[in-house]
Design a protein around this nucleic acid. Sequence first.
DNA 1: GCTACCCGTGGGACCGCTCCCACGCGGCAT
DNA 2: ATGCCGCGTGGGAGCGGTCCCACGGGTAGC
Lengths: 347, 347
Amino acid sequence: MSSAAQPPEAARARRPTLDAVAARAGVGRGTVSRVINGSPKVSAHSRAAVEQAIAELGYVPNRAARSLVTRRTDSVALVVPESETRLFSEPYFSAIIRGVSSGLSGAGMQLLLVLVRDESERARLATYLTEQRVDGVLMVAVHRDDTLPDLLDELAIPTVLAGRRGHPEPLGHVRADNGGGARAAVRHLLEGDRRTIATITGPLDMDVARARLDGYREALQTAGITVDEELIAVGDFTEEGGRAAMRELLRRRPHLDAVFAASDVTASGAVLELRAAGRRVPDDVAVIGFDDSIVARHTDPPLTSVRQPIEEMGRTMARLLLEEIAQRGKGHREVVLPTELVVRKSA
Amino acid sequence: MSSAAQPPEAARARRPTLDAVAARAGVGRGTVSRVINGSPKVSAHSRAAVEQAIAELGYVPNRAARSLVTRRTDSVALVVPESETRLFSEPYFSAIIRGVSSGLSGAGMQLLLVLVRDESERARLATYLTEQRVDGVLMVAVHRDDTLPDLLDELAIPTVLAGRRGHPEPLGHVRADNGGGARAAVRHLLEGDRRTIATITGPLDMDVARARLDGYREALQTAGITVDEELIAVGDFTEEGGRAAMRELLRRRPHLDAVFAASDVTASGAVLELRAAGRRVPDDVAVIGFDDSIVARHTDPPLTSVRQPIEEMGRTMARLLLEEIAQRGKGHREVVLPTELVVRKSA
DNA sequence: GCTACCCGTGGGACCGCTCCCACGCGGCAT
DNA sequence: ATGCCGCGTGGGAGCGGTCCCACGGGTAGC
């Protein structure tokens, strides 16, 4: 058991192999392999002998060897643009990881986390992913012009995206009902008798941002209100972007009485800017964010926000990917999860 | 190039092997291997031929095969207790990952993310880690009684911890100067003429929490102030814990005029509770947090907080681990990185 | 009593790479 | 010319599994 007594320079103690187990159990390699892989065609007697030998030797199968012959790695990659780990306010990043991890762990799959720093690294990434290191790929924050998903499609590597690039989206993906969330937010503002409702969007090359903007438009139209394009400002999901957009909106339409922001961080920037301009929130201007992140609970006033079931999205992504790996091309390729309006003080 | 034309049921196109490259380049396997691994003992002519063949075939080495013979996997695991992904306020979790990822990527190492849900999973984890799937292990949020590090030590798997379990800590680790940060915070409060300074700690089975508490004590003693044990309340790094601790402190010492909290989230809970008790922050009671997380910037008032260089901690962990993997037992085993007090409005 | 079948089993042939040994060949000293 | 050295090189052996084929022995069917 203890290799601690060995001199530090010694090679790491070599672990027992399948052969060793077979020898100790007095059976052949094939039988040991069958026991390990749960084959039913093993006598109770042999099975017991093998299991005891495994326990005595502390045998653990070598993944590389198995992987070499089965051509599976039992691991999947989660690809995240590095910039997103900064931008995404909590709990997005960790919640996705938690969901993915929990969806995977039951299947004995390992999670390879790949942060992509910049374009030059994308090329290297493509190499990694073809190195037969992973059985499938999960991607978050895919942009409309992202080419990596196409490459994965072409290489026939099972892939599931968080969100879609456009529609139709040929690859499997999971997304929140962004449009529905946006509609609920705007409806809530209308019910609070707000009439001049502005919106600060995310980058419009991302489908989430577009879908939230569309929801905003639809809710207004449903209420019989003509959309005033001057009430729409493009942001980038950051606080600073939110401030800039808010300044611009105030300049264009000083008398607006509500803002629907495409993220909490953006909303918090908007709140700061509104206050700087002497407006009270929510008395003069109501504000609603998106994500229900930790920021929403800690701003002043706490933000009303649209919550996405992020952890469940991660779990669902994992499930879709496992299905796709198990049986190429089967399973439904698109899942939309519901959003929920969390009402706090800002609207 | 295109396997897209094949029927979906077809096995994934088998990738070219080293043999194929050798045949195409008109050389032996050995020579191709040498080129790939950058051996100098290859003639310019052969090297060129091999490189061309690799490019033409789109050859990518198979990791499993290499791994099987070299007994290296070129990947390391980052082990995170799942509860921590919830508790750690941003930016800790993602910043550590970013740092680790950047420290690793240069060395061509891959990052395996392992969330540990509960004790039962720890056992499975131990199995994973001995499966020869990783060359080393990084761990965050190690508790004092955590046995996994000992196991890793015994198995002679290179390991680096974020923070230490106690001291001395036999394993390599990286930590922030928690004591120094705490001292700086308390000194700042003293300079603001606060005299009745309370503290809300983290769970005392974690070294970070202990070190911050020690720093608090030292700063007071240095200033010639006797530590009043009634001004010390134990929290758990959560907001609710912060609120409960603050209530207790107000009960014990109603006239306290400052609080040093061991985390921003705790501090934000304390602020809420202070306000509920009719105290103004910072006028009546000054508050300082720890972490300089996104929460600190968004509370009202924005929190003065102690910043840790988290991303750099991650990078340093990766560096230490790579050193340890390259040459067992060499390299210095302990790195302490400086903290910095970020002054905002709360103190 | 002989053939047919099935079940459990052992072990050979690989998977794709690295390691290392042996070999050929040109250049230099003898 | 002969011997020696060293450089580049080819290819056998193995890493530790899985897959699959062939085989032995029991049971059932005729």
